[in-house]
């Protein structure tokens, strides 16, 4: 259970960043292993890529992209928080602007492909 002194947005942001980071770190070795197949075992890689077409695996990939996005924006948040001598209001506005532009450009991107 999350203890009472931790139940606030900044702590949730902190724990999301930590957990997504840890999970991505766990995934990295698998990632490199598959990449190495491209160099040494092309046939096995093709087999593997066919496997990734399965719906369940596709769904897991979605989770991976989600983790990456969470960690990426968590990192941007932290950089802004610690490196920018801005006021909290300016930071909120900046975060809103980034969020909005990602949404808009992301929609355009999805329509384009």
């Amino acid at each position: 259970m999350i203890r009472p002194h931790r139940t606030h947005p900044l702590w949730y942001a902190f724990i999301l960043h930590r957990v997504s980071g840890a999970l991505l770190a766990l995934f990295l070795p698998a990632h490199f292993w598959v990449l190495s197949m491209a160099l040494n075992e092309a046939a096995r890689l093709d087999g593997f890529l066919a496997w990734t077409d399965m719906p369940l695996v596709k769904f897991a990939e979605f989770g991976l992209v989600f983790l990456l996005a969470v960690h990426f924006f968590g990192g941007l948040r932290l950089l802004a928080l610690e490196l920018m001598p801005w006021t909290s209001r300016q930071k909120t506005l900046a975060a809103g602007a980034v969020g909005l532009s990602v949404l808009v450009s992301g929609t355009f991107f999805l329509q384009a492909v």
Binding site: H5, H8, L10, W11, A13, E82
Partner: peptide, 9 residues
């Protein structure tokens, strides 16, 4: 770690 509990409370 910038957890912000200090600012929150």
């Amino acid at each position: 770690h910038s957890m912000g509990s200090c600012a929150h409370f």
